[in-house]
Amino acid sequence: REWTEQETLLLLEALEMYKDDWNKVSEHVGSRTQDECILHFLR
């Protein structure tokens, strides 16, 4: 499923705060797994 604008904003926000702590990043996004966050980030 597609990422919403809100999810993408949360991802970018989390990356600024937590860098590459993907566990914390995915918790911050809330609706995505670590793997989904990493894959989206790599696009």
Rank of each mutant, 00 (worst) to 15 (best):
L10R: 07
G30N: 08
T33Q: 09
I38K: 15
R1M: 14
H40T: 06
R32Q: 05
K24Q: 11
L10G: 08
A14R: 01
D21G: 05
W3M: 07
E16I: 01
L15M: 15
L10A: 04
D20R: 14
R32T: 03
Y18D: 06
W22D: 05
H28Q: 06
S26W: 03
E7D: 02
D35H: 12
R32E: 03
D35W: 05
G30Q: 02
E2H: 14
C37N: 02
E36H: 07
V29E: 01
Y18M: 03
E13N: 04
Q6R: 10
L11I: 02
E5S: 03
Y18F: 04
L12K: 13
T4V: 02
L9F: 08
G30E: 12
T4H: 05
E2R: 13
V25H: 02
L9H: 14
F41V: 03
T8R: 15
H40F: 15
R1A: 14
E5T: 10
L10W: 05
E16F: 04
E2I: 15
T4Y: 06
E7F: 00
T4P: 02
W3H: 09
E2W: 01
E36W: 00
W22R: 01
Q6N: 11
L9T: 14
D21R: 07
L10Y: 10
F41M: 11
S31Y: 10
V29W: 00
A14M: 00
E27N: 09
E5I: 07
S26P: 04
Q34A: 06
L9E: 10
L11F: 09
E36Q: 12
S26N: 02
V25Q: 00
L9W: 08
H28A: 04
L39C: 14
Y18K: 03
L15W: 11
Y18A: 04
K19A: 06
E13P: 00
Q34I: 09
S26D: 04
L9D: 09
E7Q: 12
L39F: 10
D21Y: 02
Q34V: 10
W22A: 01
E13T: 07
K19M: 05
C37M: 00
E16Q: 07
I38G: 15
V25T: 11
Q34H: 11
L39I: 07
W22P: 01
D21L: 00
K19D: 08
T8A: 12
D20T: 04
V25F: 05
D20C: 08
E36V: 00
D21P: 00
Q6W: 09
L11Y: 05
L11W: 02
V29L: 09
E13S: 06
N23R: 12
A14P: 00
H40S: 04
W3V: 07
D35S: 12
T8I: 11
F41E: 15
Q34E: 10
M17Q: 10
L42T: 15
K24I: 05
A14F: 00
S26K: 13
F41N: 15
R1N: 14
E36M: 00
L42A: 14
L42M: 13
C37F: 05
F41H: 15
Y18V: 04
D20G: 10
I38C: 13
T33N: 13
L15F: 07
Y18W: 08
E13A: 09
E16K: 09
T4D: 02
D35R: 11
E5W: 07
S26G: 12
E7P: 01
M17L: 11
K24R: 12
T4A: 05
H28P: 00
E2A: 12
R32S: 00
V25R: 05
E13V: 03
G30P: 07
E16S: 06
D35K: 11
T8P: 00
N23P: 13
E2G: 13
L11T: 04
E5H: 08
N23D: 12
I38W: 06
T33I: 01
D35C: 09
E16Y: 02
K24L: 11
V25E: 00
L15C: 12
E27V: 03
E16H: 06
S26M: 13
D20Q: 14
A14G: 12
D35M: 10
L39N: 10
E27S: 07
H40K: 13
G30K: 10
S31A: 10
F41Q: 15
E27C: 04
L39H: 13
K19E: 10
Q34G: 11
G30H: 01
E36G: 00
C37K: 05
W22E: 01
V25L: 05
L12R: 14
L10N: 07
E27A: 03
Q34F: 09
S31L: 03
V29C: 02
E2Y: 15
Q6M: 13
L42D: 15
M17R: 12
E13W: 02
E16C: 05
D21T: 05
T8L: 10
H28S: 01
E2K: 15
T4L: 06
H40W: 08
L39W: 06
D21N: 05
W3C: 03
L11E: 02
K19W: 03
D35P: 12
C37W: 00
K24F: 11
Y18L: 01
R32M: 07
T33S: 08
L42Q: 15
M17W: 08
Q6A: 12
F41Y: 13
L11P: 00
L9I: 12
N23E: 12
R32N: 00
R1I: 15
T4I: 11
W3G: 04
L10M: 11
K19Q: 08
M17I: 09
R32G: 01
L9M: 13
Q34L: 09
D21H: 04
R32K: 13
S31E: 12
D20W: 06
N23V: 11
L39T: 14
L39V: 10
E36R: 00
W3S: 05
L11C: 08
T4M: 13
R32C: 04
H40M: 08
W22Y: 08
L10E: 15
V25N: 06
L10H: 08
I38L: 12
L39E: 14
E2Q: 15
L9R: 13
Q6I: 09
T4W: 02
L15Q: 14
A14N: 02
T33G: 10
E27P: 02
T33R: 13
G30L: 02
E16M: 04
T33Y: 06
G30S: 08
L10F: 06
T8G: 13
D21E: 08
K24C: 08
E27D: 07
E16T: 09
H28K: 06
D20I: 01
T4N: 13
V25P: 01
L15V: 14
S31F: 04
M17E: 12
M17S: 08
D35T: 07
L11N: 02
F41L: 03
Q6D: 08
L9A: 13
M17F: 01
F41K: 15
E13R: 07
L42S: 15
D21V: 03
H28I: 06
L15N: 10
W22T: 04
Q34R: 10
K19H: 06
W22L: 02
F41C: 04
C37Q: 07
L9S: 13
H28G: 05
N23Y: 06
Y18P: 02
N23I: 08
E27Q: 06
E5M: 09
K19T: 10
H40L: 04
H40V: 04
H40G: 07
W3L: 08
Q6H: 06
S26Q: 03
L10T: 07
T8V: 10
I38A: 13
T33C: 09
D21W: 03
L12C: 05
V29A: 02
D35Y: 03
I38E: 15
W22G: 02
T33P: 08
S26C: 09
E7M: 01
S26R: 13
K24D: 04
Y18S: 06
Y18E: 07
R32D: 00
E36S: 06
H28L: 04
T8S: 08
D21C: 10
V25S: 03
N23F: 11
V29T: 06
M17H: 05
T8M: 13
G30A: 09
G30D: 09
T8F: 07
D20S: 11
D21K: 09
N23T: 11
D20F: 05
V29K: 02
E7H: 01
E2F: 03
D20P: 11
I38Y: 12
R1P: 09
H28Y: 07
L10C: 09
E5V: 07
L10D: 07
R1H: 06
E27K: 11
L9V: 10
T8N: 14
C37D: 03
G30I: 08
E7I: 02
H28F: 04
S31H: 09
H40Q: 09
K19I: 06
V25W: 03
Y18C: 03
T4K: 13
H28E: 01
M17D: 09
L15Y: 14
L15I: 13
W22K: 04
M17P: 03
W3T: 07
Q6T: 07
L11D: 01
